[in-house]
């Protein structure tokens, strides 16, 4: 029974991982965004878009117009809030106490000052819902651009997936969950009252449970599809037609 005093600091108990904790913890999402953005910028400069209808601005796309709204929606989303609070502001960067960067006396206001705006997430959600039909319109166009024919190209397939992810992401939102039933304490009061909202709430809760995952998948697919379309716009032949038949 050896008994000896070791250091007063709590170090060395856990082996330091080879890969930084930020990457191995559940928050690798943040870094994958950074990576995606870098790839996007690189590809944008690599493939110039030809002049279409007299417009030459390389960043021109209808997406730019709605980008502030979409960005606002994502920036105030609970899933992204977790990521940037952890990795941009290090409040905190990790849960385990040894790898946590503790700066005592570091100024912290959480979501009380400027970030109080995050309480307006629901208004961004309304706009996100308003934007959603355009995704479906795009999809419709992509599938039926040849008159009287149904054309499923690789791009259209990607659009289908993208639309699906964005829809799921939008409707797994914490605000939507709150609005559908989260704000109600008792669905069947008095006891015999029938309520559809409980079932609705339970289903939304089930997908809301994976909100962080959908947030990542939808953003990644967002990037990829936009790049893909740009690639097609740049004249690359990457859009084979998979299925084509007459109505």
């Amino acid at each position: 029974m050896v008994e000896n005093v070791t250091s007063t600091k709590n170090t060395g108990e856990t082996r330091k991982p080879l890969i930084p904790v930020e990457l191995t913890e559940a928050n690798w999402r943040f870094w994958s965004f950074v990576l995606l953005a870098l790839i996007a910028i690189y590809l944008m400069t690599e493939f110039q878009v030809p002049v279409v209808q007299g417009l030459t601005d390389p960043f021109y796309s209808p997406t730019i117009l709605v980008l502030p709204l979409v960005a606002g929606f994502r920036a105030t989303c609970y899933a992204y809030r977790k990521d940037y609070h952890r990795h941009l502001f290090n409040h905190p960067n990790a849960c385990n106490t040894d790898v946590r960067k503790e700066f005592k006396g570091r100024k912290y206001t959480g979501e009380t000052r400027l970030f109080r705006l995050e309480n307006y997430h629901r208004y961004f959600w309304y706009t996100a819902v308003a934007i959603l039909p355009f995704f479906y319109y795009d999809l419709y166009i992509a599938l039926t651009y040849q008159a009287g024919q149904f054309t499923l190209s690789l791009g259209a397939l990607l659009l289908i997936l993208n639309t699906l992810w964005v829809t799921i992401y939008t409707f797994s939102c914490h605000y939507f969950r709150h609005a559908t039933g989260g704000n109600i304490d008792c669905y069947s009061c008095p006891v015999n009252k029938k309520s559809v909202r409980r079932g609705f709430f339970n289903r939304i809760s089930a997908i809301n449970h994976h909100h962080e995952m959908f947030a990542w998948i939808s953003l990644a697919s967002f990037f990829l599809v936009d790049l893909f379309i740009r690639g097609v716009g740049a004249g690359l032949s990457i859009n084979p037609i998979l299925l084509n038949f007459k109505w």
Partner: peptide, 30 residues
């Protein structure tokens, strides 16, 4: 408002309560 949803509490909860998702965010929305 000081909670910034970093979800460490939810990670360590021995009873596996979804502290952030089901309690704090709900209260924030309310």
């Amino acid at each position: 408002g000081f909670c910034n949803i970093t979800k460490c509490c939810q990670d360590v909860c021995p009873e596996h309560i979804h502290i952030t998702d089901n309690a704090i965010i709900q209260e924030k929305e309310r």
